[in-house]
Design a protein around this nucleic acid. Structure first.
Lengths: 218, 218
DNA sequence: AGTAACAAAACGAGCGTTCGGTTTTTACGA
DNA sequence: TCGTAAAAACCGAACGCTCGTTTTGTTACT
């Protein structure tokens, strides 16, 4: 009987239940997944599930919490890219890290959309709202310095990094979670490269700082 | 008894049912909405719903079909922007049209996410896949001409218009459908303006065509 | 002995769908 | 214009089933 480093009493069982629930929720949604199904998939009895979690919704909440923990873990690749704060030079790294993050957390990402639909976004709203603030904290110092050095254009780089991050997350989510690969009519890496070029240089020809000819009617 | 221009027999009833179902599906999801609830909200009896639609899923399918019809209607603002094919000069118009489109079809847009979650994307996959092709048809001619005139940079403008369109749809969907307003820490129009600037000019300073200093390690 | 972990049956409610029946509309020969 | 019979529209109870949860226990640690 080992003592000292021993895990909380029934951590193994709850971990199995959470894993099973994640797989089921992410594939069929919350409402369509029954406690009995989770019971069968995890090997725990229904009564035991209620003993450990109290309710079905509590299981869902636990899974959401797990995702934030993974996502904000300073040791994962994505957080390291953010820490380095070298946008837009590291756009390729950002894309790679986000691709990996979406791949690794495929099931968890589905939970976000499930929450929006089946719970009106109750469980995830707070996080979304704090996102702008988090970016501000991470990047403001770095951007101020590099602006002074003339390394940035006239666009607010904070918006740039948020636009790029969100877009890449969205792109890979559609590709990997919604099951619609190559949805720009080209392969993934090509689409990402083009996107990075746009973020860095825009679609207009370089050099000419002349304003666009006024083609809008009203 | 008017004859000639008389509508199909029970169009009014089915329209009421579809409207009620759309409101309920979009707010609570497919599984969480019961036929009895649709019956109460529409004023039709449950039996009558089955008489007109045959099954619950058939109602959902009808709503998805309605959305594509609205979205591809050549008379709406968004399709007119696409027809004009003046990207990227008309980015402001594109943003306005997409904002309106998302606002007008808020409930229908939720159906897409519901389909992805509760039906594994069965009802909408075909459309997503045909999207690249549709853009190609609309824009290829216009882009070829303007490339010859030197009005476009080195970025593939077809990717540009798809990136911009998809991003704007995504942005307004989060704002208006997911209930998370101003999620970049600024108000909507400001965030859109910044995004448009990025698409046109990129985040790097203009004029300097020098390559980025190699800051990547591997 | 006491507490946490587990199991299984049972409960009440709600589900999608079907069915038997009534009402309304339609079609058409007289 | 009317009468009438077929067809469509409509209703609500009932069927068989599954749901989230509770209850009542038994087993296993400490």
């Amino acid at each position: 009987m080992p003592r000292g480093v021993q895990a909380a009493k029934s951590e193994v069982a709850t971990a199995k239940a959470l894993e099973a629930a994640l797989g089921l929720f992410s594939k069929q949604g919350y409402g369509a997944t029954s406690m009995r199904t989770i019971s069968e998939a995890s090997g725990l009895s229904v009564g035991n599930l209620y003993h450990h979690f109290g309710s079905k919704e509590a299981i869902f909440q636990r899974l959401i919490d797990e995702y934030w923990e993974h996502l904000l873990d300073p040791n994962n690749d994505l957080q390291r890219v953010f820490e380095a704060a070298e946008f837009p030079d590291d756009l390729e790294d950002l894309a790679t890290a986000i691709e990996k993050s979406v791949e690794d957390h495929r099931s968890y990402i589905m939970l976000i959309f499930i929450d929006v639909i089946e719970f009106s976004g109750t469980h995830i709203r707070a996080f979304y709202e704090s996102m702008a603030e988090r970016f501000q904290k991470t990047y403001s110092e770095s951007f101020a310095q590099r602006k002074r050095d003339g390394l940035l254009g006239e666009v607010d780089p904070l918006v740039g990094v948020m636009v790029a991050t969100r877009w890449l997350f969205y792109f890979f989510t559609v590709e990997k979670c919604f099951g619609v690969p190559m949805h720009f009519g080209m392969d993934t890496s090509q689409a990402v490269d083009e996107f990075i070029r746009i973020v860095r240089h825009g679609v207009l020809p370089r050099g000419g700082s002349a304003p666009i000819p006024e083609s809008q009617s009203d």
